[in-house]
Structures are given as structure tokens and as C-alpha cells.
Nucleic acid binder design. Sequence first.
DNA 1: ACAGCCATGTAACTTGTTACATGATTTT
DNA 2: AAAATCATGTAACAAGTTACATGGCTGT
Lengths: 198, 198
Amino acid sequence: MSVRQGLLAILNQGPCYGYQLRTEFDRRTGSTWPLNVGQIYNTLDRLERDGLVSKADIDEQGHVYWKITDAGSVAVDNWLGDPVRRSGGTRDELAIKLALAATLPGVDVMALIESQRQVSRTQFDELLRTSHEGATPDEPQALTRSLVIDSMICAAEAELRWLDRAEQRLAQHPERSMAFELSDERPKRGRPARATAH
Amino acid sequence: MSVRQGLLAILNQGPCYGYQLRTEFDRRTGSTWPLNVGQIYNTLDRLERDGLVSKADIDEQGHVYWKITDAGSVAVDNWLGDPVRRSGGTRDELAIKLALAATLPGVDVMALIESQRQVSRTQFDELLRTSHEGATPDEPQALTRSLVIDSMICAAEAELRWLDRAEQRLAQHPERSMAFELSDERPKRGRPARATAH
DNA sequence: ACAGCCATGTAACTTGTTACATGATTTT
DNA sequence: AAAATCATGTAACAAGTTACATGGCTGT
């Protein structure tokens, strides 16, 4: 929902046309996640469908302006007012992958961790370099950019730390006792049949 | 893609029927992200459409078994072989929200950070409690569960750390100089017109 | 003239997710 | 008999993402 809400929040500041919204979104999020232009028009249509936005004038240059509705403003306020709740919902692909891999026979989890660590570390280093390069160019953009880069750095650090912890935990399980067999229990529905593996 | 790939990886271990896949996915990911059963049948259909999976026998109890195809096995190997690359792609909702909020006039970013911090801290504490409660119940499930919980803990720590850093950065910008106006430059297409804000 | 950016849009598609219908079987 | 669980499926939708078509304007 971040793109949708983001565009809406920008429109809450005043009418914009589509292409402009791309620019604004880019500037304000540190140009970190380039946004496909087409997505903006899609999103605008969907926002209109939901009554959060409506078409405004077309200016002399032919720019199609959009303005936020009252319902839209309320939505923005709610969005900014509600803290992001992550715990329950967000699925982490790496966590799923690693946990799952640990339960699969014939998978070298340690190797998987090691190769993941190399990639993660490389990305972390790149982020550090990125954050140091644009030395206070004084544009307002610079601040939001460092904010976003910082968030990525923190996330990358966390990833590396987790990989270390995971390695330790797995090392304590000497036997590959983790490799789950497909559960043979079919507790309900008839006898506890052992399904013939092909 | 995690659910899709996860189910496929499990099927790589041997044929399963739909409901069983739910159980397996749950066990192997620490029962952390409960999976709606319906999603499994959906996903199986899509995997079949893509030639990664095919229907197998129906056993005496009426269970509809699915088996992986050769292409499916290759896909699993690729998935497990390729480390997760995050930097470029993943959009972080909180980062977007905060960076964006910092550019909006009339938004109290510091208050936003503070309320976010409270929520994040609460969730962090809950995670810590969760991780300490099931004291080595010896089930194989316990290990994967701690792995996943650890990853959440690391992520939550990172979030808190980032909030602190963000607060510092913003505090250094005393003026609300960050509040972007909607860019007034319309460099191309006719004159540098100032769009009349309604 | 031509390349490239500005600008708007459309169509298709992916994964994830939920709500609902249906029935068998098991447990209480 | 009723409630819960097992089990399979369908239909619809949300949000993100991409590829493509189509022009106008601008700088070289």
C-alpha cells in the first residue's frame, strides 16, 4: 500500500498531474525506488474508483491535474496517524527460505547461509559507500535520501546479524535432525495410512 | 514469491495433498505466518499452469496428491541456490512513510517517530517474550520457530535503531526546511508556468 | 531530421489474500 | 445431535509491476 498511500499523501499537499507525481514521489523518497510511470496512472484510477481522488482541471499545457477528496484527506491523516504494524503480517522471504531449507534433506544450509552472507555483506558495503558519497549537497532531497539509505543500512545490518545467529543455532544441532520427513500422521479420516512415496 | 516457492520446495521432498501442504508449511516456518488454506489450492493451480507441478494419484481416503515436475525441481534448486537480493527492490513501508512525512508541511514528524517507536518497542518486547517462552520443547519445530522469531527480533531491533537515527537527523534540521513545496518547475513544455494551487 | 525526454494512458499479468460453499469425518 | 476439524475447491479482489502505444516538445 505504500505507493498508493504515498501518492495520496502528496496529493494532499495540492493538485498534481501524473508525471509530476512521479517526480515528487522520487524526490521525497530519496530517489531510491524508481517508480514506473505507468503505475502512477493505474494508481490514480484506482484511487478515483475508491473516491479518494478526483480529476481536476487540465492546464494550458495539457497537464491532467488530480486533486484529493475529503475522504482522501481523511485517509492520509489515518495513514500518517497509524504507526506501521509489522510483526504479524509481514512475511520475510529470507527467513522463510532459510527455515524451510533447514527442514529439507539434502540441502546444505551452512553453505546457503555463507553464500547469503556474502551477498548481504556486499550489499551492505555498497549501502555504506552510497551513504557517504553525496556529502551534504544541501539539497532538501539529501536528507530524505539519507533517511531511506539509513533504513536500508539498518536492515542490512540486521540481516547479517541474523545470519550469524542462525548459523550458531544450526551448528548446535549436530545431527541433521531437523530434516523433517513429510508428516506420516494422517490422524483423521480413516486409518493412519502410510502414503506410498513415489 | 515465498509462499509459492515454499510450497514447491516442500513438494520437492515428495508428493503431498493440499491440506497437508498447509501443515508442512506451517511446521517448517515455525507456525509464524498462518496460511489461509484456500491459498494453497490457488497456488497449486498456478504452479500446475506453469508446469512446475502436476496432479498425482488420489489415495484411498480421497486425498488429492500433487507431485513436482522436473522443471519444478530445477526451480527449487535455483531458488535455494540464489541468495535473496534485497537492496534495490524491496520497498519499506515505514521508510517511505517517514521520509515522505518529513517532506509534508503540517506533519509533526517527531510525534510520528515517537508513536511509531512505542509500537515498535511493544512488538519487540512481545517477540522477546515469545522467544523465551517455549523453553526447548525438543520438537524439531522449535528450531525453525526460533530461527524465524530471531529474524523478527533482528528486524525489530533494526527498526528501533533506525528510528533513533532518523530522530537525530531530523533534529539537526532545525528549520522545517524539509517541507517540500510541490515543485514549481515545469521545465519543458511551454513556459515555466506556476500552476495555480486551488 | 532525429534522438530523447515529457506526458498520458491501456492491457495484461503476478503474487497474495480473503470469503464463501460444500461435504466427510471425528470428537464431545 | 452439535461442534470442530479435515479437506477441496471457487470466485473475486488488491496492489504492484511491466510492456506497449501514442503523441508533443526540445535540443542538437
